[in-house]
Design a protein around this nucleic acid. Structure first.
Lengths: 144, 144
DNA sequence: TTGTAATAGTTGCTTTTGTAACTAACAAGG
DNA sequence: CCTTGTTAGTTACAAAAGCAACTATTACAA
């Protein structure tokens, strides 16, 4: 952060993190927005289901650290567009098990491929060792 | 990003960047929100003015990569609350030169001190070498 | 000139987010 | 059984962000 006196915005970690996060998100966002009209919360729900199989809204929210109202609305839109199905739990009828439909799987397959490519392109700006250490550092910082 | 087959969300750079950025922003956001009732865009305008002196709305927007409507509204709220003043340029009467009032300077001094402390606390989770390389990498990734 | 394009900044309208209150279902002690 | 508390998810309303159209001013070239 420079000297003891002047504050330098260009060195401020939250600022740098935001710039990098925004730049990389915005670019990737075009993909799921253009191809499937999805919002970021929807994309995250889709990816969690594609990755971990059936989950409840609450589980997704906790894991992705997304508020439940965002999840709720994302789930509704995804269900409306037949990307996912909701199945009431018989034992505890408050919870719903979510899973991908066929077209949900197709969208997930397509987007996860794109994500892998995009991640590779981003990582290519760094050495492999840097990329590894960057991920580790980001995980540390995320546990605020 | 692992093998050629499975996609791992926990390794996806945009995801990690977002988690880290959100965690660090939210925490710091409490400060300027609680103390001065500021939004993020307002805080950014304030900081740019505190740091670089008088600037126009457009200059701030370009440098911070924030859309001009956001800046315009942030400037309005800051001016309403007497944190900044607007001075029309005599040569080109489309542009306004913004600068901090006395209380704007006071808020900036207070918040920049807090920012420095917060940044130090964040950086302390890393080694000095790591912190340096992290900043360099984030700058690279921000140039999407 | 004057007509066309460009730039700074603002405003109006729509979409998205955030917050809090709400419904419905379960849990557990008395 | 009741009452109280908790959890899952939804909804209503307010705050904020995004987008496009708009005003005012300057630039510049025919």
């Amino acid at each position: 952060m420079g000297k003891n006196s002047a504050f330098d915005l260009q060195e401020f970690l939250p600022y740098l993190l935001n710039q990098a996060a925004e730049a990389s998100s915005l670019e990737f966002q075009q993909l799921y927005k253009d191809r499937y009209g999805m919002l970021r919360a929807e994309w995250r729900v889709l990816f969690h289901l594609g990755l971990y199989g059936s989950m409840t809204a609450g589980e997704i929210g906790r894991r992705a650290k997304v508020h439940k109202t965002k999840i709720s609305r994302a789930v509704q839109r995804l269900a409306d567009r037949r990307f996912i199905t909701r199945q009431k739990d018989e034992a505890d009828r408050r919870v719903e098990h979510l899973s991908l439909t066929e077209s949900g799987h197709a969208a997930y397959a397509d987007l996860s491929r794109a994500a892998r490519d995009y991640d590779a392109a981003l990582s290519a700006r760094l050495t492999p060792a840097e990329a590894t250490s960057l991920r580790a550092m980001l995980r540390k910082l995320a546990q605020a």
